[in-house]
Amino acid sequence: MKSATARFAFHNVMLFFGLAVVLLMSLAAVFAPVLAPYPPSALHLDHILEPPSSRFWLGTDRLGRDVFSRMLFGGRVSLWVGFVAVGISVSIGTVLGLISGYFRSWVDEVIMRAVDIMLCFPSFFLILAVIAFLEPNMTNIMIVIGLTSWMGVARLVRAEALSLREREFVAAAKLAGLPSWRILFRHILPNALAPVLITATLGIAGAILVESSLSFLGLGVQPPTASWGNMLMEGKSVIGIAPWLSVYPGMAILLTVLGYNLLGENLRDMLDPRIKQ
């Protein structure tokens, strides 16, 4: 066994790397209009498919658009989709999980069986079908991803609620005559918030991956709006002559998802007393 401090250091390096990436990507997305050297849809028709240079840092695409600028704006799309989709799934999962764990009995049974059913769905198939039918756009993607990914949160919150409902402060709140919804949202939820936020962090990573996969298949964010997924789709058709189009947007996806995963997983490890010892 290595010393505890060395272990701690390794975890912290991963945690801070994740945090740094997340912050950096968020800042890049927020300040995209300021940072981008060109507007994302500006055509430079005399500079089509140019490799990276001092003028176009990451090269240009088939229409002579600056890849770096488009990636900055694509980051906005990915993060926005990630945040909203996770907002939806966490809200659904939290409410259902709280109700399920707090009231028990048949409500619990019904909700947990619904979770089981949803988990058996080949969900990417369903997302694909629904998106294709509803016409692919950002709003639909966020809603569909949110509606198909709340099950983990529901199970987690239920487990928390199951143990918290037996605690003294909940009994005290009941004795004080507080209504159930108040106990749920004011007394139980705040105590279950840390694991929920961590799951949300990991969920953002997952949602970004699903969004970029959909966009890559042409069923996600539609051009001319840039997203990392649809940039890669466009890059695939010219992969032989302009490989940079297939490389950089994917790097951005990898880095962002990695950042959120590192942040979430290492925070979880820190909070988990079994691993911490």
Binding site: L209, S213, F216, L232, S246, V247, G250, I253, L255, N261
Partner: peptide, 12 residues
């Protein structure tokens, strides 16, 4: 591996 989009790995 968790963060790698399969389609990007395929392209690479």
């Amino acid at each position: 591996g968790f963060a790698m989009p399969s389609f990007w790995l395929a392209l690479l």
